[in-house]
C-alpha cells in the first residue's frame, strides 16, 4: 500500500469516528433514530473504493478493539464485540468492501450524473444494507438462538434508515467524485 493510500484510509477512519460523535437524528417516518456512523462506512466505499475503504473500516474496528470509545454513543472496547448485534459491526468490513468494489465496477467518469448516482446507490444499497444485514442477522440468529425469521423481523425497523443512508451516500459519492476524485475506476 502506498503511503498516500495508507493516509487516505486513516483520514477516512477519523471521519467515521467523528460521524459517531454526532448525536443521532430522529426522522419522522422512521421508527428508530439514525446515527451517522454507518453512513460513514458506505461513504468509505463510495469515496475510496474497495481496498482503501475496507482498510479505513478495519482501522475503526481496531481502535474499538484496543479500547477507544469511538463507536456512536461512546461505545468501545472488546465488549462492543460481545453484543448480540456485533454481527453488524463485523459486517461493516464487508459492507465497505462490497460498496467499494461495486462502485469501482459500476461507475465511470464518462457516465451522466444520473447514471453515476444510480450506480453509487446500488453499490451502497448492496454493500451497506444487503451484505451488512446478512452478517448482522446471521450473527444475531446464531448467537441468541432466535432463529433467522425472528432475527430478520427484529432488524426490520432499522432498514428504512439504512436505505436513506445509502441514498445520502450515493449523492455524496457523486459530489466528492466531482470535487476531488479518488475512486479507482475499472469500468
Amino acid at each position: 500500500m502506498s503511503t498516500r493510500d495508507l493516509v487516505l484510509a486513516a483520514l477516512f477512519a477519523a471521519i467515521i469516528v467523528v460521524l459517531g460523535l454526532l448525536p443521532p437524528i430522529a426522522i419522522g417516518f422512521i421508527p428508530v433514530p439514525i446515527t451517522a456512523q454507518s453512513l460513514g462506512v458506505m461513504l468509505a466505499g463510495v469515496v475510496l473504493g474497495a481496498k482503501r475503504g475496507t482498510v479505513a473500516v478495519l482501522l475503526v474496528l481496531l481502535l474499538v478493539a484496543i479500547g477507544l470509545p469511538v463507536l456512536s454513543g461512546g461505545r468501545g472496547g472488546l465488549a462492543a464485540f460481545a453484543a448480540p448485534t456485533s454481527g453488524f459491526l463485523i459486517g461493516w468490513v464487508f459492507a465497505a468492501f462490497v460498496t467499494g468494489y461495486l462502485s469501482e465496477r459500476l461507475i465511470s467518469r464518462s457516465q451522466t450524473g444520473l447514471v453515476q448516482g444510480a450506480g453509487f446507490f446500488l453499490a451502497a444499497l448492496t454493500g451497506g444494507v444487503v451484505v451488512l444485514y446478512a452478517f448482522g442477522i446471521t450473527y444475531l440468529a446464531l448467537i441468541t438462538g432466535l432463529g433467522f425469521k425472528q432475527a430478520f423481523l427484529g432488524s426490520l425497523a432499522f432498514v428504512p434508515g439504512d436505505v436513506l443512508k445509502a441514498f445520502v451516500a450515493a449523492l455524496a459519492g457523486r459530489a466528492v467524485m466531482v470535487g476531488y476524485p479518488l475512486l479507482p475506476q475499472r469500468a
Binding site: V7, A36, L39, V176
Partner: peptide
Amino acid sequence: RPLTLAVPLIILTLKSAD
C-alpha cells in the same frame, strides 16, 4: 443537512492526505 456537511468534510479532510 447530512449531504452539505459530509461532502465538504470529506473533501477538505482527504485533500490534506497528499
